[in-house]
Design a protein around this nucleic acid. Structure first.
Lengths: 188, 188
DNA sequence: CAGACCATGTAAAACGTTACATGATTCG
DNA sequence: CGAATCATGTAACGTTTTACATGGTCTG
């Protein structure tokens, strides 16, 4: 079985108990560094995972907002993850509209591409800041070296570091590409 | 219309005339930096693109190997790309099995994950070298600054730069993550 | 002549995306 | 009470992946 959405969901649920809605937030914030999914996919996958006994749900009654069901990974779920981690990875998988545009930019009006590059640069820089805060929160009082040596749950920290470096490079590249294109097409 | 595979194919075909088979090679080598696709997708997309008049094909008779059909982008195809580039981009889209494994690694046997990280680090380093050669070939005698100011077709150069930096960061991160996990689990 | 590479597809199954649908609760 | 946020889905449609299929040419 390939289906890695389920493994991404299982991996995210190791963090604690989450509802579908909370998971969707997480997939927007941090999990999106390595797995993109829309909320509808998550609800559907949670249903399947529970049916297959890889996660278990628990109803939470809330008074200040609608009730919800939160899920945690079962032993069978850990087993599924272990089997997944032991198998060879598929090639990585990037699909980036913006790069398609840049690839073609020589034959096109550069102005809208430049605008999008600059927007993206700003968004990426903002994400770097978000990740920095997330990383600081995860390592608490420890410095990075110590945390990585002695902390528990370094997995999420490591993936967050990768996300940070990705967004950092993204910001730098978008800025550079926009500058190059501006220089070449002084119009506008 | 979303469907960006078609735009990725169009963008790749701006480079010159390619057959489905050659395009598949290209999608493995350089286009994979921004768009992942398997050959069967490309053959199907080429058929659709030709039917829609966005590309045109030409039969090439070869004596040393089987005949083939090569394609180039038509004016209508350029128009389609222009419309695509003027529309806002979708959020970027990453799906990386290896990061899912690392996210979950604290609850799992780290050994196979470490092995895959090290493999991936080596593969990424090799890709950096490949990109360096590709970049050198694209800019010819010019240095990078000059090429980006005056060269024609900087689009592919820019996307290649992004690919290079991605693989560079990838190699560095994989190496670091593997080292961290090795330190924590001295077993094996 | 076997194995590698060139070259191109079809069909079925799996997966992902979009649009639609519903309803609770809080805040201003 | 309207807008925002919380909360959870279904159904239809499109796209992607996998398995299967075929055959030419070259190299050792």
């Amino acid at each position: 079985m390939r289906v890695s959405l389920r493994h991404a969901v299982l991996a995210a649920l190791l963090d604690g108990e989450y509802s579908g809605y909370q998971l969707a937030k997480l997939f927007d914030l941090s999990v999106c560094n390595f797995w993109y999914a829309v909320p509808q996919q998550l609800y559907a996958e949670l249903t399947r995972l529970e049916r297959d006994g890889l996660i278990a749900g628990r109803r939470v009654i809330q008074h200040d907002r609608p009730n919800k069901r939160v899920f945690h990974v079962t032993d069978a779920g850990i087993g599924e993850l272990a089997a997944f981690a032991a198998a060879p990875t598929k090639p990585s998988f990037i699909r980036e509209d913006l790069l398609v545009m840049v690839q073609a930019v020589d034959e096109l009006d550069a102005a809208p591409v430049i605008a999008q590059l600059e927007e993206r640069a700003a968004a990426a820089a903002a994400k770097v800041d978000t990740f920095d805060r997330l990383l600081a929160r995860m390592r608490g009082d420890l410095d990075e070296e110590t945390f990585l040596r002695e902390g528990d749950r370094v997995g999420p920290y490591l993936t967050c570091l990768r996300g940070r470096s990705f967004e950092q490079e993204n910001a730098a590249w978008c800025t550079r590409a926009a500058a190059v294109l501006r220089t070449r097409a002084p119009s506008r």
